[in-house]
Every structure is written in C-alpha cells, then in structure tokens.
Design a protein around this nucleic acid. Sequence first.
DNA 1: ACCTGAACACCGTTCAAGT
DNA 2: ACCTGAACACCGTTCAAGT
Lengths: 182, 182
Amino acid sequence: MRALGEKLGVDPTAVYRHFTDRDDLFREVGDRTLSPVVEGFEPTTDPSKDIASLCILLRSTLIANPIGLQITAQGPTRRPNELLITEIILSSLKRSGLKVPKAVIAYHTIIEHTLGSAWLDAPLARAGDNRLETYTAWRDDYRELDPKVYPATRAAAGDLYPASELVFESGLAALISGLVPH
Amino acid sequence: MRALGEKLGVDPTAVYRHFTDRDDLFREVGDRTLSPVVEGFEPTTDPSKDIASLCILLRSTLIANPIGLQITAQGPTRRPNELLITEIILSSLKRSGLKVPKAVIAYHTIIEHTLGSAWLDAPLARAGDNRLETYTAWRDDYRELDPKVYPATRAAAGDLYPASELVFESGLAALISGLVPH
DNA sequence: ACCTGAACACCGTTCAAGT
DNA sequence: ACCTGAACACCGTTCAAGT
C-alpha cells in the first residue's frame, strides 16, 4: 500500500477512501487484468475449440499478471470479466449438448484445471529466462537420486519438467474430450 | 515466527539456528505433513486405480494441512515424502505401459490437477461447516444475474458449486482415462 | 552448541484532523 | 468529498552478546 501511494503521489492511506481493504482493491484490479481474455476471445462454430482457446488465453493472461490469482482461491469475485468468462464456458458446454448438472461439473473441472495450472506456473514464468536453467538444475537433482529407492523417478529424471504449456494443453485436451460430447 | 516461538517457549529468533528462513522451515514441515499419504497408500494390481487413490489421498491431506501448498508453487522440495509420491505415480504409469516422455507428461498433468484442486479448495474447506452456506450465498448471487447478459450462467445458477470432491474426482478420472493406457 | 534481546526495515489499517 | 499524518499492532530477519 505504501509503494502504491508513492506511485500515485498520494498518501498510502488515501486508498481506503475508495476500497474497504487490500483484498477489495485486488479483486477489482484482478478483474481488470482479465479484460484481454474477454476481448481476445474469438468464437468459432466448435464449442470444444472455443473452450480450449479461452482457457489457454485465460491461463497465459493470469501468468502474465497474477495479481488476481491469490484472491480467486477465496471464491469467485463475481465481477464483469470473470462472469463473462464463466458465461462463455457454460454457453459453449450447452452448445456442445451438455445439460445442466453435467455441464456445471465440466465447467468447474475445466476452470479448476486452468486456474491451478496458472497458479503453479506463475512464479516460474515470472522468473523469465532462467526458468529453463531452473528446470535443468531440478533435473540434475533428480538424476542423482538413489535408483534403488526411486527407480522410476531416476529413470525419468532427464525428461521431467517439459514445457509447462505442453503439460497444460495435453491435460486440457484430455479433460475436454472426456467431459464434453463430440 | 513470534507465535511459533511462544508455542515452543523459546525466543522467536531461535528458529534461525535450525532453518535458514521461514520458507526453509515450511518446506520441511510441509514434507512431514505428506507422510499420511505415503503411509496410507495401498497399492493394488491396477495402476490407474493406484494413481487415483493416491491423488485423492494427497488432495485431502493437503486440504487438511495446507502449510506446504504455497511453497509447492515455488518448485519441488525434493524431500523424502514428496519424492516417494513422485515415485509411486511414475512407477504406476510405467506399469500401465507408458514409456518415458509420455509418462512424464501424464505425471505432471495429474499432479498439477491434484495440487491445483487442493489449492482452490483449501480456503473453503478450512471454513468447515459454513462452506455449504457460502456456496448457497454464491448461488443466490448468480441467480440474480441479468439473463440477457449471462443467460447460460443464470440458467445454471442453482447447480453451481457442487461438492468439490465430485468435481476433482470426475476430472481426475477423465485425465487418467485420457492419458493412461487401459 | 544453542539461545536471547535489541534492533532494523518493513507490513495493513484506523482515525482524528485538515482542506 | 477527498487527503494527510500520526499511530497501532503487527511482520521476517540480523547480529552482537550471553550461557
């Protein structure tokens, strides 16, 4: 709050005139950061494709600007951009032929997968270029494990931590093809 | 740290003799909290079943004691219990017939799904009994949305936020059947 | 070898007072 | 209607000093 005050050229406590507390401010800013998702989304005639492209865009947007991520774990903000994202996913699921109780489970599963992936990948993605070096260092650690205690991990060591986008998208594809009629 | 010191009847700064910093302590405690997963796991002859039961146990353990969750987002701790969980999943995937590059992607996808679900559900699960009341309050909010702007969300309002275990397990089943040979 | 205690450099937030 | 500034009640961590 002090850093924000300085950035704005204003007393740190002036913010409390406009937001009840830090989390309230974060919810508002967090929803603003989602506007590239709503604006960048391009609907097609294929509901499964729409869900996939929206989720990929949502994940990369959250990773680029993770300010809203921690607040999301406390529940839905029910603010405009978040609601529009919910609407796009639910209406796509409806278009795909899913009725309401199953569509809702599919929605929660898919959004949970997307938010979870963004949450796990955000810290490393921020690190930028040394992300690849970090992965290499981890792999080296796994390579030094005792093959008697951890044989499968030791054998897989060199292949651990592939591109996180690949992991996310392969999971997303499995979820969509498992939960959405096609 | 001050609260911990008081609990131990010791100066708050005494901890720094044994751990380099707060995160170091949390990594160690976090791995200890995973021991019920390793000890409670009961292997069968079905690799897919083993992965599912391990992940369900891991998720509920993390939710019951989420101290290690935030640290996990900064990368693997590579401590004993975490490594054993990795080993169980990778060896199950191997048993199922998956070779190394694909097995690793399946591993990351499945563990990401499990950690992500625990992260999203932990705050509400801690709230305990008013969790259901919270869900009801949220549904009421969604029911009041403008049906012209959010038709699909409005129509699904009453069914949103089903039991989080159901959401997690249906996603897990879809992932396993999509990524693991059977 | 381990712990203490003062201190540093921070936090989010409240509230009376200002303009 | 909005901002200021002092103050409260906290943080994690360091480091010289103690036993």
